[in-house]
């Protein structure tokens, strides 16, 4: 439930969640950080048919860091993530209003090349979804489709063979995804034969192979056991050295462990609070966020 009214000249919403009712202050999601913003989201609304899934979300994602999106299920955090690389275009009834910019370029303008966009913003899904192909082919799929890799008889005849590049790429991204030692002897086996955790790391490696700037992860560890989850978490922290990682999770401990900043979405598709992870978890401004984090509801 929400309504908008103007108090003291600032835009505030009164929202009730659980037993607490409060005004959402814009200041709660004003997050100051050093350096440039990689992604700037401004006043984003998403509708599925008549249903509003996100309302007026604005947030800046800093470069080379881990940003966690947390919140109860149905709060719109996955919807938000899928807006960033326009995967919501796949859903016929979805309608997006507002602005997202990547390095200052508008993602939601008419002439946008979705291929280029998704090369720059990679994505890892909740369920591991490797292609039913060999491990090697899973890695080289993206570069091949983008014309950066060319192998095969014809390429060899024409002197354009990139087999060595492919070998190097496969090894590099598999090492980066901490999977190389486990699969180096069976690169030509079907990827569906890997364990769930390995499959998920393969999907991360696959995303790295197209050399993105941003990696979106939609609850990447929720389908995995604790040991596989720990490996994925370590990997995410390492990736933040070179990439901008945005990760959705419903696991608050996970968010606290891996992220630099955290955004909290609550019911109704509303961004309530966004800021430094330590600050959000230790001293949130919003009463409802505190209730949520301490487990009073959600």
């Amino acid at each position: 439930m929400s309504e908008t009214d103007t108090v003291d000249g600032t835009d505030q919403r009164v929202t009730t969640t659980g037993e607490t009712s409060e005004r959402v202050r814009e200041a709660w999601s004003d997050y100051e950080f050093a350096g440039d913003a990689k992604l700037v989201v401004d006043d984003l609304d998403v509708y599925y048919g008549d249903e509003r899934a996100l309302q007026g979300v604005s947030l800046d994602v800093p470069d080379e860091s881990v940003t966690a999106l947390i919140g109860p299920s149905g709060c719109g955090k996955s919807t938000f993530l899928r807006c960033l690389n326009r995967m919501n275009d796949r859903i016929d009834s979805a309608r997006v209003e507002g602005s997202v910019t990547l390095d200052g370029e508008e993602v939601y303008s008419d002439g946008v090349n979705l291929v280029e966009l998704r090369k720059r913003i990679g994505m890892v899904f909740q369920e591991p979804n490797p292609f039913p192909k060999s491990i090697r082919d899973n890695i080289s799929y993206g570069p091949r489709k983008h014309g950066d890799l060319d192998t095969g008889l014809l390429a060899r005849l024409l002197g354009r063979d990139d087999t060595d590049d492919e070998e190097a790429l496969v090894e590099r991204v598999l090492r980066r995804a901490a999977l190389w030692d486990e699969v180096k002897d069976r690169l030509d086996d079907n990827a569906l034969g890997l364990s769930g955790g390995q499959q998920q790391r393969l999907c991360i490696a696959r995303a790295l192979a197209v050399d993105p700037d941003v990696i979106l992860m939609d609850e990447p560890a929720s389908a995995l056991d604790p040991i596989a989850t720990a490996k994925i978490e370590d990997l995410i922290e390492e990736l933040a050295e070179d990439y901008t990682v945005v990760v959705v999770t419903h696991n608050m401990q996970q968010a606290a462990r891996i992220s630099d900043q955290t955004a909290v979405f609550l019911t109704g598709g509303e961004l309530v609070e966004y800021g430094d992870t330590d600050q959000i978890f230790e001293n949130p401004e919003s009463q409802r966020v505190e209730d949520y984090i301490t487990g009073k509801f959600g």
Binding site: E105, E106, G111, N113, P143, L169, D211
Partner: peptide, 14 residues
């Protein structure tokens, strides 16, 4: 990756 191309995401049509 060295041979990946970086194009603008909003290419203009001629």
């Amino acid at each position: 990756m060295s041979n990946a191309t970086r194009n603008r995401i909003d290419g203009a049509d001629s």
